[in-house]
């Protein structure tokens, strides 16, 4: 492509990415922005800081982080061996197994969530913390397994064998051989899973204990009923997507340094 059309396309693209972000940041930092001004009368971090340090915001952030961390850890533990097998072995029924594992990610949450409610009621754990953890894990497992199995496809099991040949125990091999080899792949898989869990609204709203306020259950009512002022809404949105930007920056660094592919089957 010639430089002129290329430049125009890329400038348009950059504008489409930067403008919405700038407007959102502008509202989050704004002091008195009234229609039809193109920019707020003043900018200050005070409002944003005041909002973030409010006790209910702190609680929502804490709850979201805890929940997503637990879900990520749970998915990692459950997904580790299956991903290793899927990534390093070839066996009959592998494609079938892959499809079964993928299915929850391919079905919209709304199709399953109302069937989950009676199941959790029957198990006696409806609207308890464990129910939302299990429900989220069901939907994050496919992402974790997909990412990790593609990491394992480039992994050489002979390092493990070598290590055990040399008389190293299983735990020490795991900590000093396997983990260092896989750490960037594991990091990307965990961050990906964290983000999927972090942005789940419907499941959390329908299945979590009703007093568990998370970031998504804070921002959705604001958006649907528009009962809050624009600066508060913008501040919430900024807090809500900040982890994803961090994720992108860290993962591009990791992928660049390690040259691993994260696009497994999806």
């Amino acid at each position: 492509m010639n430089w002129y059309p290329r430049m125009m396309i890329l400038i348009a693209m950059a504008a489409c990415v930067i403008i919405p972000l700038t407007v959102l940041m502008g509202w989050a930092l704004s002091v008195d922005w009234s229609y039809p001004d193109l920019a707020p009368k003043g900018m200050s971090l005070d409002g944003l800081i005041e909002y973030i340090t409010r006790s209910d915001t702190v609680r929502a952030i804490k709850n979201s982080v805890m929940l997503s961390l637990i879900v990520t850890a749970g998915s990692l533990i459950l997904a580790y061996m299956p991903s290793k097998i899927l990534g390093t072995r070839d066996f009959k029924g592998k494609t079938f197994l892959r499809i079964i594992i993928l299915l929850p990610a391919l079905t919209p949450g709304i199709c399953v969530v109302f069937g989950m409610i009676p199941v959790f009621i029957r198990l006696g754990i409806y609207r308890q913390y464990i129910s939302i953890v299990l429900a989220q894990i069901t939907f994050t497992l496919p992402y974790m397994i997909l990412t990790l199995s593609s990491v394992f496809e480039n992994y050489d099991e002979n390092y493990e064998r070598q290590s055990s040949c040399l008389g190293v125990g299983k735990t020490v091999t795991f900590v000093h051989v396997i983990i260092p080899k896989l750490k960037s792949g594991l990091a990307v898989g965990c961050m990906y899973t964290f983000m999927v869990s972090w942005s789940m609204y419907l499941l959390t709203y329908e299945l979590a204990p009703s007093n568990l306020e998370t970031m998504t259950t804070t921002i959705m009512p604001m958006l649907v009923s528009s009962t809050v002022t624009y600066p508060i809404l913008a501040a919430t949105a900024v807090v809500f997507f900040l982890p994803s930007l961090l994720f992108l920056i860290i993962s591009t660094q990791i992928i660049k340094s390690d040259n691993i592919s994260t696009r497994g089957g999806l």
């Binding site: 950059a14 990415v17 403008i19 407007v23 959102l24 039809p36 998504t216 958006l223 930007l245």
Partner: peptide
Amino acid sequence: LFQMNISIPHIAMATMVVFLLGSVGI
């Protein structure tokens, strides 16, 4: 810049559109 929006949660994206195209948006 191009990749950035992939990682932004869809609810946050919808919020940006409210500020962009809402009746008192930019």
